[in-house]
């Protein structure tokens, strides 16, 4: 099987049952994506596939051979962090940090959805999306944080969204 992850090509032959998350963590040593519940409930495994955020635990690696996969390792590096990563640091958007890679990938994907004009459950007029705290909370409800760093997470995302031209 051939995969494109963070702009790099990989060729390997994992067990057919391998989830995309296990491929990243167990076969490619890309351990930034985390396994929390392994059932799509916690969001710690969130990555971007063709720019869209998904739960990497709930999909098979074999189904993503022709896709463009971006993990937290491809979002930014310690030397060159993504604006969202910088904002999480600035706003204290974590405590233990376990959910953070998923939160950040999810937030990056979510802001792209907002830019496309996608409404949410709390959008009053489905044709006119304006990002506020309630919108951020609703759109991030697939990412749990057991340390409950939610206020910092919402602030960090709002900061990045506001910084957009």
């Amino acid at each position: 099987m051939r995969f494109t992850i963070n702009g790099r090509s990989y060729e390997l032959d994992p067990d057919i049952r391998t989830s995309l998350l296990d491929l990243l963590r167990e076969h490619l040593d890309l351990t930034g994506s985390k396994k929390g519940c392994d059932h799509g409930q916690c969001g710690a495994c969130t990555i971007l596939v063709n720019g869209r955020r998904i739960n990497s635990c709930l999909t098979l690696a074999v189904m993503h051979q022709d896709d463009d996969i971006t993990t937290i390792e491809g979002i930014g590096t310690p030397e060159n962090p993504h604006p969202m990563q910088q904002a999480f640091v600035r706003h204290d958007g974590y405590q233990c940090g376990y959910c953070t890679p998923g939160q950040i990938c999810s937030a990056v994907g979510m802001l792209d959805e907002v830019a496309k004009g996608w409404p949410s459950h709390v959008t009053a007029d489905l044709g006119a999306v304006e990002l506020d705290e309630a919108e951020i909370s609703e759109r991030m409800s697939g990412n749990l944080c057991r340390c409950s760093a939610y206020p910092g997470i919402v602030d960090a995302i709002g900061d990045v969204a506001g910084a957009k031209p």
Binding site: G40, G43, T46, R52, R53, I54, N55, L58, T59, S106, G109, M110, E113, P119, S120, H121, T123, L126, R139, M140, S141, G142, N143
Partner: peptide
């Protein structure tokens, strides 16, 4: 509205 009331952003994408 029904779709947006279901699941999470990640799940709705898949």
């Amino acid at each position: 509205r029904a779709l947006l009331a279901g699941a999470s952003g990640q799940l709705r994408n898949k």
